[in-house]
Simulated scan of single mutants.
Amino acid sequence: MIVGDGGQGIASLTGGETHVGRNLTVGGPFGTGTLTVDGGRLFVAGNLTVGGVAGEGTMTFGPRNSIADVEGTFSVTASGSLHRQFAANPLPAIQAVSANLAGELSVGFAGDFVPTIGQSVALLEVSGNAPHASTFVGKPQGTVFIADWGAAHLPVRIDYQANLDAGAVANDVTLTVLRQGDVNFDGTVTRADLATLVANWHATGGFAQGDLDGDGQIGLLDLMTLRRELSTASPTTAAPVPEPASLATLFTAALAITLLGRYRTPGLARPAIRR
C-alpha cells in the first residue's frame, strides 16, 4: 500500500484501529505522501517506510496518544520526515522489530505536557536483536535541540540505544527533557552557564553555546530566559547564582551593546543629540 503513488496522497487516521496487511509506504516512487495518526493504533503486518525512492513522505503523530505497531522494519529514508507531538502521559509513537533512520525528525510538546527535568519519553521501541546504528539527519547520538512547547521552547536530548538483547523490548530512541538555561548539562543553572552565554554573545551556535530559543544566535532573548531560570533556582542551587543587582547590570549592559551594534551597522545613523 502506497500513500502518494505518482501524485499527492493524504491520509489521516483518528481513533480506533487500522490494519494494513502488507507493507505501507508514505510517499511513492514519484509522488508525495502525508500520513497523520492522531489517536488510536496503526498495525502494519510488513514494513512501514516514510519517503519513497524519488518521492517525499511525511508521517505525523498528533498530540493524542497513538501507536504504530510494525511487524517488520520502520524506516525514514533520506526523502522522509517524521514529526511527533507529545502530550500529557505520552506513549511511544512507534514499535517495530528493526529500524533504519536517515531522514528528518521534528518534535513538539502540547501545552498540557508538564515536563519534569530529566524526564525521558520514548519515540521508538525496537524489539529485535539487530544492532541499530542509524540516526536522524543532523541529530546524532546526544544531540540537544530545541522543541516547541506550546508558545515556548524546550531543550531535549536525543539518545539511541544499540545492541539490544534478543527478544527484549527497549526504548531504542528516547528524548530527555533538559532544563532551560543549563547549557553545560550539569543539572543546574549557575554562573557557569551565564559565563558561557556571555562568552558567545552575538555569535552563532547551538544550545551548548547559549542559544536557548533555537534561532541559531545568542542574544537578548536567550539572556532573558537564562535570567528567569537563575531567579527560580532552588535553594540547593542558589549559592552560585549571581545577585539580582548583578543580573540587572548584565542585562542592561547587554541591551546597551545590542543598541550600539545597531547604530554601528552601515546605513543606520546615530540619533541626534540635543544640546
Rank of each mutant, 00 (worst) to 15 (best):
M1F: 12
D5M: 05
G6Q: 03
Q8C: 07
S12Y: 13
G16A: 05
E17V: 15
E17F: 09
E17H: 12
H19L: 14
G21E: 12
P29D: 15
F30D: 14
D38I: 07
G40L: 06
G40C: 02
G40W: 02
V44P: 02
A45R: 13
L48C: 06
V50T: 04
G52L: 00
A54D: 12
E56S: 14
T60I: 13
F61M: 08
N65I: 08
A78K: 15
G80N: 07
L82I: 04
Q85P: 07
F86Y: 15
A96N: 04
A99M: 06
A102Y: 11
A102R: 09
G103Y: 06
G108R: 02
G111H: 13
T116G: 15
I117T: 15
G118N: 10
V121F: 05
E125R: 14
N129V: 13
A130I: 12
G138H: 05
P140D: 03
Q141A: 10
G142R: 01
V144W: 05
D148Q: 14
G150D: 08
H153S: 13
P155R: 07
I158N: 00
Q161R: 12
L164P: 10
L164Y: 10
A168L: 11
N171V: 07
T174W: 06
R179A: 14
G181H: 01
D182F: 04
D186E: 09
T188M: 11
A192K: 12
D193M: 05
A199D: 10
N200V: 04
W201Q: 05
W201F: 08
G206D: 07
A208L: 10
D211C: 02
L212K: 01
D213V: 10
G214M: 06
G214F: 01
G219K: 06
L220V: 13
D222P: 03
D222E: 09
L226A: 03
R227G: 00
R228H: 11
S231M: 13
S231W: 05
P235E: 01
A239Q: 12
V241H: 00
V241K: 04
P244M: 01
S246Y: 05
A256S: 11
P266N: 09
G267S: 03
L268A: 09
L268N: 13
R274G: 11
